[in-house]
Design a protein around this nucleic acid. Sequence first.
DNA 1: TATTACGTTGACGTTAACGTTAACTTCTCC
DNA 2: GGAGAAGTTAACGTTAACGTCAACGTAATA
Lengths: 127, 127
Amino acid sequence: MDRKYSISDLASEFNVTTRTIRFYEEKGLLSPQRIGATRKYAGNERVKLKLILRGKRLGFSLDESRDIINLYDPIAGNTKQLQLLLDGINSKQKELLDKRKEINSMLSDLKQAEENCQQALNAQKIK
Amino acid sequence: MDRKYSISDLASEFNVTTRTIRFYEEKGLLSPQRIGATRKYAGNERVKLKLILRGKRLGFSLDESRDIINLYDPIAGNTKQLQLLLDGINSKQKELLDKRKEINSMLSDLKQAEENCQQALNAQKIK
DNA sequence: TATTACGTTGACGTTAACGTTAACTTCTCC
DNA sequence: GGAGAAGTTAACGTTAACGTCAACGTAATA
């Protein structure tokens, strides 16, 4: 049905303030329609916000998130543009694979710490 | 051999400024030895710095990184302390699993975008 | 011996990402 | 019709994470 959302709809759905959403617009990350002065967000704008917040949780800056969003942009006219877009996508993919590797090593570090901790706890129990 | 490092050794190895390293100390994340007034970093301090920077790349704040470092702390005396430590480790593990999931969905989004882009490029070639 | 390199401690400046407050409009509802 | 509730712009405040001097000490080296 292609619903529309008010600013506070999105704010409460994603647990951010309306100030935050307006700030993202100010930075060129969102571009809602206007009914008079009031903002109205269609589905694609909602998705953008979702992408921004996911980016944030993964340590991307707003500038980076803007770039990421643009990678999904279906405009990209000529071949050169498309090639640039593809390069951007590939580079961001590598970046993410690196992050995933780092997460994995962090997880294995923590697993080690967990075992040590378990060990020490068991030693206490025996006593 | 348990080498020691100067502040600029670490700075150049990890590609940060000495200011950054001193700042981390100021925030209680590092605690190098002193030879006179000069800082000297042993292996464990070097590892801490590594953990901090990895944390940063994954979107953790310095406060969070300090907590993470403390999860590896082998002091943890009594059972209650150990249990708390274990809880902290488990909670951080879950957090990381969440991040990994988000990375995976971002990767699959990008894969989709890549295919679309490839598609469009092929369409250009045929022409 | 003077310059160059590296170290130190302040202390103030900067940027990203919002928070907060003010002053105002517009809509709904009792 | 007046009292919220939700929207707006504008402007200043705040915090984290450093950058950037300045002013100084020390140690090697040309």
